[in-house]
Design a protein around this nucleic acid. Sequence first.
DNA 1: GGTGCAATAT
DNA 2: CATATTGCAC
Length: 341
Amino acid sequence: MREEDEPNWFARWEEELPTPDELMPLSQTLITPGLAVAFDIPTSPTDPLGASRPRPTPQPPPHLSLPQDDTPPPAPPAHQYDSPELGAGGGGSGPGDEPARTLKRPRLVWTPQLHKRFVDAVAHLGIKNAVPKTIMQLMNVDGLTRENVASHLQKYRLYLKRMQGLPSGAAGAGGPALAAADAATEHLFASAPVPHHFLSRGPAVPRGGEGTGAGGGGVPDQFVPFVQVSALQHHQQMAAAAAAAAAQQQHPHYYHHQRHMGHMGSPPGGGFDHGYLMRQQPAGIQRPGGAGGAGIVASTLTGSYAGDLDQGAGADVGRRKELTLFPTGLQRDAVITGSVG
DNA sequence: GGTGCAATAT
DNA sequence: CATATTGCAC
């Protein structure tokens, strides 16, 4: 007599889920469990974390474990996991007495997937609204701070600038000083498709007669760059989503991001396929075993939005700790290769 | 307070 | 090297 308890919300819960394949619980603790507790900061404006974790935060497997569909606890109840250990100092006393405030978060590792999410957010927000705060909110990744986004955005802009400057490898005339500076960013940014409207030509670009084309994209300032005809439908959703996100800046948790945008990466004249992790493994997940050179290879990312992000554990890299976020979709499609060499 | 950007730090 | 942090102007 418990099967028919309250099928109402319960049933709806399942209905809400597209498919276990596409949707996974998003809210994970970004910071290490222990850190979270130690932190337990008074809800910073930039820190949506906190005790209110609506999402069940499934087992935080430090290693790659399949999400499995073992009935996600439908209960919205607070499902927080305490930190079993973490240098709380010998007593393990409650948080608060320790100067946790001085602790630093691990560096965020921008994986291709995370960056993809970033780009999508920016793309759908439009250049105008693509400011750190908004982007951060739309991305809806727990623990992601405005600073994280701002820093990344800054680099991303430089990257775009560089792209515009070098249409096809022209060199020399222009700003040589710029190229060298941000050359490093290429790797990451190259993993994600750059929406065409992002590459707005300079306002003073030498152009012939472009006046007719309203959507041509000559005016980066005033025009709505990103609305393309075919994108309208989606844009509606996006606008709504953006509005929602903007409206409820206070409770980002209940907002589920939208992940139906996977087509904006098609440049006119042919899309280029991008293989994400074929070139490098994000720090933190490489060599699970460390023996024989086993690695993680994504067989197919389908190109569309995989799913929500799952969090990897902070990995200790040398002397600093890095935080790695990766999509759960990856896990499903991920294949552990036996050996590479 | 938020943003953008350059410089600087880790 | 990739991010983070800072300083400054808007």
